[in-house]
Design a binder for these strands. Structure first.
Length: 282
DNA sequence: ACTATTTCCTGGATGC
DNA sequence: TGCATCCAGGAAATAG
């Protein structure tokens, strides 16, 4: 389940492999769920575009595209405008972007194939179809709230002010912070010593400071280890991440807390399983 | 203006 | 072994 560290890892891998390449043709599958923009628009935006950069925004992978606008040639001057747009991919739960040779077997649940000028193909595969593809003109894409690794402490603190809902839900709310998902929310709350059900607005300034630092710490460590490989996650090179080995509460229900040996509890908050240590987290 | 709940999807795990 | 059921969860839609 790609969250910020996994998406960052994937985006970096893709950037290495496809930056500077040109998308020649695009094939889109029958299923419409993965398409957030109209199919015709996606094809028109991608075909003939040069990939200028690949980067992450929240849990989205953004391809910065450049294409030469169909210039209306006037008598006096040829306008050769470069049109800037973006291809935005959200991997959902099970989405993958693979760069491969055209001969490679087309996996079941392949929803899009972009043929590149280098001869390779960039494919979007997503069995569960929670992933989404869209296009936007440059600068028009809104990825949501603040980047957790860029936001300042003061701003971070105000995000939770007056909120009656559980802090866990607030951390997952992409309109506040973008990129934190279930694993990293649980891990951050454990390190900050805050229970997931704590109402966000009741958390002290000092505790929020701890949470702020914990979120940064957890995400930074996870990126350094290539993310968490749960079920079948692999990055752009097909490599697994290793942060799952560092999980202190996520997926450890019933196992002893690594700090105090108390069994880790699992509860459901807003439909999400939430793991915490009843002794270490208040 | 919020927050809470439901819905979308398939494959793997579990139960009988 | 086979079949039904449940569960994972991000985000949008819907309900409160």
């Amino acid at each position: 389940m790609p969250e910020l560290p996994e998406v960052e890892t994937i985006a970096r891998g893709l950037a290495k492999r496809v930056t500077g390449d040109v998308i020649e043709t695009v094939w889109l599958g029958e299923k419409s769920e993965p398409l957030k923009s109209p199919a015709t628009e996606i094809v028109a935006t991608l075909q003939g575009a040069l990939i200028g950069a690949v980067r992450r925004m929240g849990k989205h992978i953004v391809f910065d595209l450049q294409r030469n606008e169909k210039s209306h040639r006037t008598k006096k001057l040829k306008t050769n405008n470069v049109q800037l747009s973006q291809w935005i991919v959200h991997l959902g739960m099970t989405g993958r972007l693979q760069v491969c040779e055209p001969e490679a077997e087309v996996l079941k649940h392949t929803h899009a194939i972009a043929k590149l000028a280098s001869g390779r193909e960039l494919r979007f595969v997503d069995p569960r179809r929670f992933g989404r593809l869209s296009v936007a003109s440059a600068g028009n894409f809104d990825a949501g709230g603040f980047e957790p690794l860029e936001v300042e402490l003061g701003k971070f603190t105000t995000l939770f002010r007056g909120r009656k809902g559980p802090i866990k839900s607030a951390l997952l709310n992409q309109k506040l912070l973008r990129g934190v998902g279930n694993i990293y929310a649980d891990e951050s709350l454990f390190r900050a010593g805050i229970r997931p059900r704590r109402r966000a607005g009741t958390i002290s300034r000092e505790q929020l400071r701890r949470l702020f630092l914990s979120v940064r710490e957890v995400l930074t460590e996870a990126i350094a280890l290539g993310g968490s490989s749960i079920s079948d996650y692999v990055d752009a090179e097909g490599e697994e991440g290793f942060f799952q080995l560092k999980h202190r509460v996520y997926g450890r229900e019933g196992e002893p807390c690594l700090v105090c040996k108390t069994p880790i509890k699992r509860i459901v908050i807003g439909g999400r399983s939430s793991h915490y240590c009843p002794k270490c987290q208040k």
